[in-house]
């Protein structure tokens, strides 16, 4: 048995790959749900109900989608250039911390919109800076950025913990480790009255469109793809590899930092250590399911959000541990990798 690269790559197959991957993942996870003594079909029905059943649940699902679009884009942009940014979780927390700090202390006499721009910008800058370090280490010394970005997640989250228990602790939070709140006038406007849905969703979707434009219509976008497909060939063709990777790192880190800034100014209003239930890591799955396509990321982020919001409600109703959501999402990643393989290769005997 050997694998042979397909020459006829149809768009239909590329679209079928994630659907197959998710179907297989749901089937396998169904076995685990059955293990809990619950009918898997009933559980999945309850999940759909929990994610879309009411105005509240739809708005919750879309609220959950927002950070996932951004962390998904962060992974998609980086992975396309074979830059393995696994540090989105840390970059998100750093962006969130900076946003809370500025949002609390920006008392200058300036319009709220301008303050918000500064806050978003600062979140993006800190995210980008945090990824530049590991990327420079890889380019200069050949240190694998996967391990450094993973380790940095722990360092950054400990730093956040230090800040919200120390200098940035909210004195009014009854001793809970929680950061000072951002001023209410620099909170992002709501998208829907009487819900938690904020305009961060539009920002995230806008970012996806922008990334898509850059990737498909600019020289830089072409260079990122070349760097990812075959780095030596790209260098031979005159692509400035280091510059391209540093550019990609800035975009990827900035997107993750922005996700954190938006979670704080749009939703929570302050930073705690449960700000992100692993959005950084889920972003990797979102990006892979989308085949690293920025537009696809919006839809796969929605899928992952549905799984998480749905599983929470299903867990309350049927008693299946809500960790099933993480299981479904992680199996989807593995099945998607296999599905992608068989759409680009065929098996020959």
């Amino acid at each position: 048995m050997r694998l042979e690269r397909r020459t006829d790559l149809s768009p239909a197959m590329l679209l079928a790959a994630p659907l197959m991957a998710v179907a297989v993942s749901l089937a396998l996870s169904g076995l685990l749900i059955a293990l809990a003594g619950v009918n898997p079909l009933a559980a999945y029905g309850q999940m759909v109900q929990g994610a879309f059943g009411s105005r509240l649940s739809i708005s919750e699902t879309l609220t959950r989608t927002t950070p996932l679009v951004l962390t998904g884009l962060a992974a998609a942009v980086a992975f396309r250039a074979r830059l393995w940014n696994i540090g989105a979780e840390g970059q998100l927390y750093a962006g969130a911390l900076v946003a809370a700090w500025l949002g609390h202390s920006l008392t200058l006499a300036m319009p709220a919109a301008l303050s918000l721009l500064i806050i978003m910008g600062a979140g993006m800058v800190i995210g980008a800076l945090l990824l530049l370090g590991p990327v420079l280490l890889r380019l200069r010394l050949g240190v694998d950025e996967v391990v450094t970005t993973l380790l940095m997640n722990f360092i950054i989250i400990l730093f956040v913990s230090m800040m919200i228990e120390g200098p940035m602790k909210d004195p009014l939070a009854f001793g809970w480790p929680q950061s000072v709140p951002v001023e209410s006038d620099v909170m992002l406007p709501k998208l829907l009255e009487r819900s938690r849905l904020h305009i961060g969703l539009l920002i995230a979707v806008g970012a996806a469109l922008l990334i898509w434009l850059v990737q498909s219509r600019t020289v830089f976008g072409m260079q990122t793809r070349a760097a990812g497909l075959n780095a030596p060939a790209a260098v031979f063709a005159g692509v400035p590899l280091s510059k391209t990777l540093l550019g990609v790192a800035c975009i990827s880190g900035a997107l993750a930092g922005l996700a954190g800034a938006i979670e704080v100014t749009g939703l929570k209003g302050y930073v705690t250590l449960d700000l992100s239930p692993g959005y950084g890591y889920s972003g990797i799955v979102v990006a892979m399911l989308a085949g690293l396509n920025p537009i696809g990321v919006v839809f796969t982020a929605l899928f992952v959000a549905v799984v998480f919001v749905g599983a929470d409600s299903m867990s309350r109703a049927l008693g299946v541990p809500s960790f099933i959501a993480d299981v479904i999402v992680s199996i989807s990643l593995l099945t998607m990798l296999v599905a992608l393989l068989f759409t680009t290769y065929r098996v020959r005997r």
Partner: peptide, 23 residues
């Protein structure tokens, strides 16, 4: 045998093994 990306597969195994463990 399938030759998938060792980085992404490994992370997938970590996510799968730990979520299955908690479940």
């Amino acid at each position: 045998p399938l030759g998938l990306s060792q980085h992404v597969t490994g992370l997938g195994i970590t996510l799968f093994a730990s979520s299955l463990t908690y479940y």
